[in-house]
Design a protein around this nucleic acid. Structure first.
Lengths: 166, 166
DNA sequence: CTTTGTGCAAAGCGTTTGCACTATT
DNA sequence: AATAGTGCAAACGCTTTGCACAAAG
């Protein structure tokens, strides 16, 4: 009945763009072309991305030419607005959609750098238990399980035993 | 009977220094004064530290003056040798002892930047379960629970209600 | 004596910032 | 018209690197 399929979208009343505009107005910030183009573009697909990838992909749109500085500044605002969530991976900052997505964590493949999402209620429970033990007030957590994803493991195996059937 | 007190030292047969020397020799690398001074100094206390803190604290020893570059290079080797473990926190790389310490994770206080260690067997089990579900081959994980530690929470409370007894 | 390690200073990389100009309000 | 945002290029903080000299094997 209820939505128990992990990582399915949460129902949200307004679009990311609408929410961002709301956020901007509530803070007396301006609704600029650059900010609108960026939210729209970012929420067109549900990928993980870093600042450089975003600058590149926005640059490819015929209409837009948004500066590096503006992209970085807008990313901060989107995080602030609760639309994006940031994490640091191998030195660089990586972003993912927060608005409209449930709390989750990641498996990180060190061969192909892919991020696989998963949700775990147990983890949330564990987090609370540990925090209680230490009189710690939790605001969030970040779990990254690293290793090799199924596809990369297969590729590697194939290299070692070329006669394997696929 | 067995050591079930979380985060107590594991019994190890050789000192960090001995182990590092072993590692260096097995790789045909040289056992230099700088490398020895650094292992010794790092394993004198069980703190978390970053490269800059290490450079500073080593600089204070009357005898030694080790260059920034050498410190960075040696830290990489110590991680490689399994003596140290690195993680990225707020942009900078932070190190902790790995040799002689059991697997554990951290509570990170965002007020005072302190790291509190904790160990959880459930977490390891959870990690395996999730990985199995995704055909993922795990090599490790990193969980950081962020929030405010007991001391900082108290300080903050005290500010808000100055009549509180300590 | 050969070769690896060190120190220095310069370069690199991702991110941030100061400032004159432009756009939103 | 007033003010916040943008683009540019320069600055930043941390880390890495090229190279001549020093030290270990």
């Amino acid at each position: 009945m209820s939505n128990d399929f992990a990582l399915e979208s949460i129902e949200v009343s307004s679009s990311p763009r609408e929410r961002f505009v709301e956020y901007l107005q509530s803070r007396g910030k301006r609704v600029t072309q650059q900010r609108l183009q960026l939210v729209d573009h970012i929420f067109e697909s549900h990928d993980h991305f870093d600042a450089d990838e975003l600058i590149l992909s926005v640059g490819k749109l015929s209409d837009s030419k948004i500066s590096r500085a503006t992209v970085y500044r807008t990313l901060d605002e989107l995080v602030d607005a609760g639309l994006l969530r940031a994490m640091t991976l191998t030195g660089r900052r990586v972003y993912e959609h927060d608005y409209g997505y449930p709390q989750h964590d990641h498996l990180h493949c060190k061969k192909c750098d892919k991020l696989i999402e998963f949700a775990s209620d147990e983890l949330v429970a564990l987090r609370e238990a540990v925090a209680r033990e230490h009189g710690f007030r939790v605001t969030g957590h970040r779990l990254i399980i690293s290793g090799v994803c199924a596809e990369c493991a297969q590729k590697q195996n194939r290299r070692h035993s070329p006669l394997d059937l696929v």
